Simulated assay, not measured.
Amino acid sequence: MSDASIALLEVLDRDDHVRHYLPISSWPVRVGRAIDNDLVLDDAHIAAHHFSVDSDEAGVFVRVGETVNGLRADGRHLGAGQRSAVGERPLRLDAGDSHLRLRLLEHALEPELPLRAPRSVWHAAGPTTVAGLLVLASLLFGTWLDQDPDDLTRALASVLVAALTAGVVWCAGWSLVTKIFTRRSRFWWHVRVLLFGVLAIEFAGAAANLLAFSLSWPAISDFGFVYTYAIAAAMLYFHVLALEPRRPQRMRAMAVGMFIAGTSLSLWFNHQNRDQFGEELYMTHLFPPALRVAPAVDTATFVKGLAPLKATLDDKAKKRDSGGGDEAMVDEE
Rank of each mutant, 00 (worst) to 15 (best):
M258I: 12
L210S: 00
M251H: 04
A233F: 08
R246L: 09
A255R: 00
V191H: 09
A255K: 02
P248I: 07
H190F: 06
Y237S: 01
I231D: 09
V191F: 07
I260M: 11
I260F: 13
Y229Q: 06
L211D: 05
V198M: 15
A212F: 13
E202S: 13
G257W: 02
A200E: 10
F225S: 01
M258F: 12
A261C: 11
Y227R: 00
A261G: 15
Q249L: 15
S214G: 12
H190P: 08
L211F: 01
L194R: 07
R252E: 04
A206P: 00
V226R: 10
T228M: 10
N209M: 08
G257A: 14
V191S: 10
I231Y: 03
G257L: 06
A208G: 11
A234F: 14
F259P: 05
F238M: 10
P245H: 14
V226W: 11
A204C: 07
F225C: 01
F225R: 06
A234W: 14
V256C: 01
L243N: 01
H239W: 06
R250A: 15
A207T: 01
A219G: 09
Y237K: 08
P245T: 02
N209E: 11
A219D: 15
G224V: 03
A200Q: 12
D222H: 12
R250S: 07
L194G: 13
A233Q: 01
A253D: 09
A255D: 05
I231F: 03
L210T: 01
F213N: 00
A206K: 01
F223I: 01
R192H: 11
R192E: 08
L236Q: 06
G205K: 02
F213H: 03
A206L: 02
A253E: 05
I260S: 08
L210A: 07
P218I: 11
L199A: 09
S214Q: 10
A233Y: 09
L195G: 14
M258N: 10
F223P: 04
V193T: 12
G197P: 05
E244S: 15
A200I: 06
H190W: 03
V191R: 07
L243S: 02
Y227Q: 08
Y229G: 02
V193K: 13
G224L: 00
E244P: 02
A212P: 04
S216D: 15
A253W: 01
